[in-house]
Design a protein around this nucleic acid. Structure first.
Lengths: 137, 137
DNA sequence: GCTTTACCTCAAGTATACTTGAGGTGCTAG
DNA sequence: CTAGCACCTCAAGTATACTTGAGGTAAAGC
């Protein structure tokens, strides 16, 4: 089966080489084969790495990821795994709502400052923050 | 003008009391009035805190927030403020896309494990990961 | 043969964002 | 009058997630 060097793997997942070694050291990424002393990453390792990146990007801590993988690997009670995933999915929903809401505030601010700048350039009156209802963004 | 104690302010923004003092110490939350020795937070402070929470929740570091507020406060070149806001808005868009994409992977996994559990309960055949195309989630 | 390149281990260091602890003040209720 | 509560300052400690440094190996190109 084809394997990849640590540099190739790091590039593929947009992680640093020390980060890959770190994940292995803390047990997040187990069973990395060796080619002599050098690591040789397999498709199985890639799958795990993809999962790590996916959960990490959605705000899960490495500790929680360790718990999740422990549950998955050790043929633990499936209900626990399902609960963990369901909870995390809900947390992502919350994040999405919060993110969109906060983005509206930022868009409003951006529009306001843009209008101030344009007003200065065109010698127009200074815009009024009252005219920027959040509902417009 | 009405003011609020540190405890009331902390509760309002869902921050800890030491965090409020910390934000003040690093200059993120300036001009907090005192009632004797005790802090007395005003609406102006609340507005700044709302902005801090908004940007922090969307992944901006406190350092970048300091830069942003410095720009805003010191009547700095507006283009710099606008650039910063625009860049951050774009980063939120990227986050939204990534978050939704990763959520689909997690939903798929969740469905898979749920089906495994149900199959076990009902003595049905084990589901096949091949039958869970990402496009379905 | 020598140098460069890519990797290795292990221990220690770093950045970010807080939190905790020690020691103290000032008001109010019993 | 003393107990408790809410606040204070300042320095040091903590958690998470890595990164850096020192010292070394092993194969490939010149």
């Amino acid at each position: 089966m084809k394997t990849y060097t640590i540099a190739q793997t790091a590039a593929k997942f947009n992680l640093s080489i020390p980060t890959l070694r770190y994940y292995e050291a803390i047990g997040l990424l187990p069973n990395v084969a060796r080619n002599g002393k050098n690591r040789a990453y397999s498709q199985t390792n890639f799958d795990r790495l993809a999962a790590i990146c996916c959960f990490k990007n959605t705000g899960m801590t490495l500790k929680d990821l360790q718990t999740l993988f422990q549950y998955e690997d050790q043929d633990h009670d499936l209900n626990d795994v399902i609960d963990l995933l369901r909870t995390h999915c809900q947390r992502i929903d919350d994040q999405l709502v919060l993110l969109r809401d906060n983005q509206r505030h930022i868009r409003r601010k951006l529009q306001y400052y843009t209008d101030i700048r344009d007003a200065q350039i065109n010698h127009q009156p200074h815009p009024d923050w009252q005219d920027y209802p959040l509902s417009r963004f």
